[in-house]
């Protein structure tokens, strides 16, 4: 089962991304692309001539994808949650290194913003993991999935993750790191052809990773977990369609003053109670 899920992860992620694009389009009263559009994009990109800035940069793109896949597989195999979060962080930082390794202004600006963003986002992920630990006494995903539902005791932690979600998925209001109107995709700009494919697909894996994290709040009850994931999915889409992009400094301020405090309060409550 876990092998199957892991192997199918990019395809699942692609479908999720396709559904998301379709729903966003409908929310903007457009018809939107077909659900398979992400795959069409993938094939079309693979067909293009790859323009490599330097081999290290292109390699970083591939490694970024692999690390994101590993992070996801750790979750699917029921491994340590902290390891999964570590690999997620690693994949993002590899992309940042790639962004800094080229001379393009947009790429560097994007890398800087991405760096600031993960400084604000990753603590929240870690705090979420800790809240799972407090609830179940283990960081093992397999244990979390057999323990009772944790959403009722850690509502605040769930809210914190919900606030951080647009940042993790690079959706407005917290998409300053990508910001295609300002820095044209940030770190992604210098990738092309097949190498952009990997970055593009890593985005889907990221998406799957984040919603699996939300799913974990359901614990042993898969229905609650699924409902939470779908709810989070819709909240993110609605937020994307009703807000403008905030500046990255405002984003960090908001994340620390709201999400971080909420997640911290959740931990404190978990320790006290």
């Amino acid at each position: 089962m876990s092998w199957l899920l892991t192997l199918l992860a990019p395809i699942l992620g692609g479908f999720l991304y396709g559904i998301e694009r379709k729903l966003t389009a409908r929310m903007q009263s457009r018809k939107g692309p077909p659900i398979l559009q992400p795959f069409f994009d993938l094939f079309k990109l693979a067909d293009k001539r790859p323009m490599v800035v330097h081999s290290y940069h292109a390699f970083m793109g591939i490694i970024h994808f692999v690390a994101a896949w590993v992070a996801l597989s750790v979750l699917f195999f029921g491994g340590d949650l902290l390891v999964a979060i570590f690999f997620h962080l690693l994949s993002t930082s590899l992309l940042i290194v790639a962004g800094y390794s080229v001379k393009s202004t947009y790429s560097r600006l994007g890398a800087t913003r991405e760096l600031i963003a993960i400084a604000a986002l990753e603590p929240i992920l870690i705090l979420t993991a800790i809240s799972f630990y407090l609830h179940t006494g283990s960081f093992e995903v397999s244990k979390i999935l057999t323990a009772p539902t944790s959403i009722f005791t850690s509502v605040l932690g769930f809210l914190a993750l919900l606030i951080a979600l647009p940042g993790l998925l690079k959706k407005s209001p917290f998409d300053a790191a990508e910001a295609h109107q300002e820095i044209v995709g940030g770190v992604e700009i210098e990738f092309s052809g097949f190498f952009y494919d990997t970055v593009y697909a890593a985005k889907w894996l990221d998406m799957l990773f984040v919603f699996t994290l939300v799913f974990l709040f359901g614990g042993s009850s898969f229905v609650v977990g699924g409902a939470l994931a779908v709810f989070a999915f819709f909240v993110v889409l609605l937020a994307d369609n009703s807000t403008a992009r905030v500046r990255y400094c405002d984003m960090v301020r908001l994340l620390y003053s709201l999400a971080f405090v909420l997640a911290g309060a959740n931990i404190i409550l978990g320790v006290v109670l």
Binding site: R26, M27, A239, N241
Partner: peptide
């Protein structure tokens, strides 16, 4: 605005 987006979801494009 969020409500409007939700409304658009169920109206014709």
């Amino acid at each position: 605005a969020a409500f409007n987006a939700l409304k658009n979801l169920f109206s014709t494009p």
